[in-house]
């Protein structure tokens, strides 16, 4: 437009922006493509490996995890049994790979339930405020006031301990904390001018939640969710120690550690408990690193002024 074209002449793009924008990466969404680093890829690789193993456990060349081979009891690592066998002669690698299914389903499934319910309510409460927020927030406090482990133990003991029930119970238990994190993050965006502008344009609540708020809340939610998965994997271990994880012949990481710690096996064959504990340790570290790096990567720098 000729009459206002002069106005288009350069407005000082602030020095900070200029300094940070890499010209060789014009597609860079934030102008700052932070390197994720080798550690991130290693950790992501490990998570991928565990997930791959859990999905294809049946197809992989592994012995039956419950097959008791009395000719190789308490065997150390060998070509035949890469991680050795336990006191009943069951292959430990196979038990760990099959056992990861329980940890992953409980972990990711539980968080998925928590995010679906807690996240949705958190967005709503954080945006709407007022009575909706007061009621939901109060309810979350009431649930949080229960010691979660105790609550889970009681429910599992009475209701049964199949994988599905375990996942559902842990998922429900994770709702209030996910609710609170997402509510708080949403609140920090709910009164920004771009949300007010969307309202002024006549956007529906649903649209504001999905298009304006969710993209801003998602990175924090994702990072917290990954840490939540890690917490649940540990929780499964705790439940197994109390004999409340999935019923026993079925391997789970918690169950294997539990078995490896019983019958004085820690003294005679500490490897049985070590391998699943190591797998758990690596998975938790990986989840934390990946969550943390992703959050840092997707953090938008807003300060152009």
């Amino acid at each position: 437009m000729p009459e206002i074209a002069p106005a288009a002449t350069p407005e000082r793009p602030s020095a900070a922006v200029l300094g940070r924008r890499a010209d060789d990466q014009p597609e860079s969404p934030n102008g700052t493509r932070r390197k994720l680093g080798l550690l991130f890829w290693l950790c992501l690789g490990f998570i991928a490996l565990v997930v791959f193993g859990a999905i294809f456990a049946n197809v992989l060349p592994l012995p039956n995890p419950n097959l008791q081979n009395y000719s190789a009891v308490d065997a150390g690592p060998s070509l035949h049994h890469l991680l050795g066998t336990d006191d009943l002669g069951r292959d430990l690698l196979s038990r760990i790979v099959f056992g990861s299914r329980v940890s992953l389903v409980v972990g990711f499934g539980g968080i998925a339930i928590g995010l679906a319910i807690g996240g949705t309510l958190g967005l709503l409460a954080g945006y709407k405020g007022g009575a909706v927020d007061t009621v939901l927030n109060g309810a979350s406090f009431v649930i949080l006031a229960f010691p979660p482990l105790l609550a889970i133990i009681v429910v599992v003991a009475f209701w049964g301990r199949s994988l599905g029930k375990l996942t559902l119970i842990i998922g429900i238990a994770s709702i209030p904390s996910l609710f609170r994190v997402i509510r708080a993050t949403t609140m920090s965006y709910a009164n920004r001018e771009f949300v007010v502008a969307a309202r002024a344009m006549g956007a529906s609540t649903r649209r504001i939640l999905l298009r304006e708020l969710l993209p801003n809340v998602a990175p924090a939610a994702l990072s917290f969710a990954l840490i939540g998965v890690a917490l649940i994997v540990v929780l499964e271990g705790s439940l197994a120690f109390l004999g409340l994880s999935v019923a026993l012949p079925t391997p789970s990481w918690g169950n294997i550690i539990y078995e490896g710690a019983s019958n004085n096996l820690l003294q005679t064959d500490p490897l049985i408990a070590l391998w699943p504990a190591l797998a758990m340790f690596l998975l938790l570290t990986s989840l934390n690193v990946v969550g943390d790096r992703l959050r840092a990567r997707f953090d938008v720098r807003e300060g152009a002024l």
């Binding site: 920004r192 001018e193 771009f194 007010v196 502008a197 969307a198 002024a200 344009m201 006549g202 956007a203 529906s204 649209r207 298009r211 304006e212 993209p215 801003n216 938008v300 807003e302 300060g303 152009a304 002024l305």
Partner: peptide
């Protein structure tokens, strides 16, 4: 009745592309 706000940074959703921000009113309606 539309508004222009004081804080230029906070007025725009940091996650969206400029062209989508400007097209949003049409997308709503």
């Amino acid at each position: 009745l539309q508004m222009v706000f004081q804080d230029p940074i906070s007025s725009l959703n940091p996650r969206r592309k400029v062209i989508d921000i400007v097209a949003e009113p049409l997308a709503i309606w």
